[in-house]
Design a protein around this nucleic acid. Structure first.
Length: 549
DNA sequence: ACCGTCGGCGCC
DNA sequence: AAAGGGCGCCGACGGT
């Protein structure tokens, strides 16, 4: 059973019930105010909700206490199918641009309103689009994989909205303590005391009493006036200079970064009622990774993770997929030797034990080089060793790189395709300055496509992991029988590419940990079937995020 | 006053 | 120690 929702007019919603073959079973013209209750009742039948954008339809449902099990996010799925090589002949892919190619409408400016006061534009018909997407999947050369990708993308969209709704538990008091320890008390104006102290030492050591440390241009000039051979102010370049000004300067830069990016201003702007609620953007990265919008959610500095504190009586279960990208590469390339190395909990150590390289850092940087296309330094030196030990895996990424260099499109395991390589190709992402620059550099574009297939497939694994875990957590919390809202049960509060955080009543923590491991194994089976690759996860039960790892 | 770009750095 | 891939955010800066 599927139910498509559509804004049909101001304050009116049309719901169309469809059977699994796509035949229409019934239509309902609903008043917007009655929608949440209607969805609540229908949810008992476990339908898949078909809607334009999860970020638009789901938040008011969650606020009303309605959690849904399944959906199709038409816009996210459309974007995948528009470019997917495995569905290139479909009507969807060959047709011209339409409303489904446009970005989603801006989110509501009135967060407490059930729906926008201004009615959103009337949707394009979701039933028509859904049928078009089904037909694209069914006619594709990889229907099973594409269907899994679309399901994963859609469940990710549900999780993204649920995580914003629940929020990441955050202690403002602890955050303030950390800032005060590192920077000194919050100043009324000017720099915090410890930043000012570090700056004074820099000025003293350079004999530059008026040095402005916040302007890279001024800073380089000041360093040069003092006789230092600095051409930039990047910390890794500064580290190579021996001079008494360098240590305090690096300290100043570190503190300045913390102060401006995650200081008291950030705390006031982003943390309310003990929760950090960023906007997560599923599919926001070309490879399929999530992006975030506001608050820098995917760049929480380690320095501040002690401020992520579980509620009283609750705890966090933090899980991290170890060496996810190498494992994904082993599975997708079918490299048996690499898969054997991955039998170890620590895959890099497994590579050492297999005799491929001598040390763990060699394994790590060698693999990073293989996946990213590194040619210099340790990663470049290790490339031949990695290629000898794992020829099948290396051939796989080399092939992706050569395809990119020739301007060809590459695809992930489940079928997300890379943006077109040709510089004159017509594509909305062609306006992106970074992509344009890369396209004009064949080797650079080859590094991009090389990484795309691995990073993108890792993102697919992570979506499946998260989707599987979401279902298990709901069951652990009593399933549909328990009349408890999402945030009274074990629930996801954070996702960072290969890492998940669950907030759970303490008594359920061990079971949550087991589900995190089992869902990782399930994700591996979903993507790669019986391939002999293990997806090891490290799991920690902690009361604050900094205690993990 | 506002806008886009850039250097730099946080995360994976 | 640093370099390859992917991001977002900050302040500075140069343009209107």
């Amino acid at each position: 059973m599927h139910i498509a929702l559509r804004q049909s007019a101001a304050a009116r919603v049309e719901a169309v019930e469809l059977d699994d073959a796509g035949a229409e079973l019934g239509r309902h013209d609903l008043d917007e105010g009655a929608l949440t209750q209607w969805v609540r009742e229908r949810e008992a039948g476990h339908p898949r909700w078909v809607w334009s954008d999860t970020a638009r339809w789901y938040p008011p449902l969650l606020r009303a206490g309605v959690r849904v099990e399944r959906c199709v996010d038409l816009r996210l799925c459309h974007r995948i199918l528009r470019h997917a090589v495995s569905a290139a002949g479909s009507e969807l892919a060959t047709g011209g641009r339409d409303g489904w190619d446009s970005p989603p409408p801006a989110p509501s400016a009135a967060p407490d309103a059930l729906f926008d006061l201004e009615p959103p534009p009337v949707d394009d018909d979701p039933v028509v689009e859904w049928l078009r997407q089904r037909s694209a999947v069914e006619g594709s050369s990889q229907p099973g994989r594409l269907a899994l990708l679309l399901a994963g993308e859609s469940v990710g969209a549900l999780v993204a909205v649920e995580m914003r709704f629940a929020g990441l538990p955050w202690s403002p008091a602890r955050h303030d303590e950390l800032l005060t320890e590192l920077l000194g008390p919050r100043p009324a104006l000017g720099r915090p005391a410890l930043m000012e102290a570090a700056l004074a030492r820099v000025r003293e050591a350079l004999d530059e009493p008026d040095l402005n440390p916040d302007s890279p241009v001024e800073l380089v000039k000041g360093l040069q006036r003092a006789g230092l051979r600095a051409t930039s102010t990047r910390s890794w370049e500064l580290k190579r200079i021996e001079h008494p000004a360098i240590a305090p300067l690096l300290e100043y830069k570190k503190l300045a970064r913390l102060y401006s990016a995650n200081g008291w201003h950030w705390l006031e702007e982003w943390v309310h009622d003990g929760r950090f609620r960023p906007v997560y953007v599923p599919g926001g990265v070309v490879t399929g990774r999530w992006a975030s919008d506001g608050g820098g959610a995917l760049q929480l500095p380690r320095q501040l993770r002690a401020a992520v504190v579980a509620d009283e009586g609750w705890t966090f279960v933090v899980a991290d997929a170890s060496q996810l990208e190498p494992r994904v590469l082993a599975a997708m390339s079918g490299d048996a030797a690499m898969a054997r190395a991955g039998q170890a909990q620590d895959m890099y150590q497994g590579m050492v034990d297999a005799g491929a390289v001598e040390t763990r850092p060699q394994a790590k940087y060698g693999m990073l080089g293989a996946i990213y296309g590194g040619t210099t330094g340790e990663s470049g030196r290790m490339r031949p060793r990695i290629a000898r030990a794992f020829p099948t895996a290396m051939a796989y990424v080399e092939s992706a790189a050569r395809a990119g260099e020739k301007g060809e499109v590459v695809s992930t395991w489940l079928g997300r395709s890379s943006p077109p390589g040709a510089a004159d190709s017509y594509d909305e992402t062609a306006s992106d300055a970074e992509l344009r620059k890369l396209r004009n550099d064949a080797r650079g574009w080859g590094r991009f496509t090389r990484n795309f297939v691995v990073q993108g497939t890792a993102a697919e694994w992570a979506l499946c992991w998260m989707g599987s875990l979401r279902r298990r957590l709901w069951q652990l919390g009593g399933g549909d029988a328990a009349d408890a809202p999402l945030t009274d049960r074990p629930h996801l509060v954070f996702f960072l590419h290969d890492e998940l955080i669950v907030h759970t009543p303490r008594a359920l923590a061990e079971q949550v940990a087991a589900e995190l491991r089992e869902s990782a194994a399930e994700a591996g089976r979903l993507l790669f079937g019986a391939a002999p690759v293990e997806f090891a996860v490290t799991v920690a039960i902690v009361d604050s995020y900094d205690q993990a790892k």
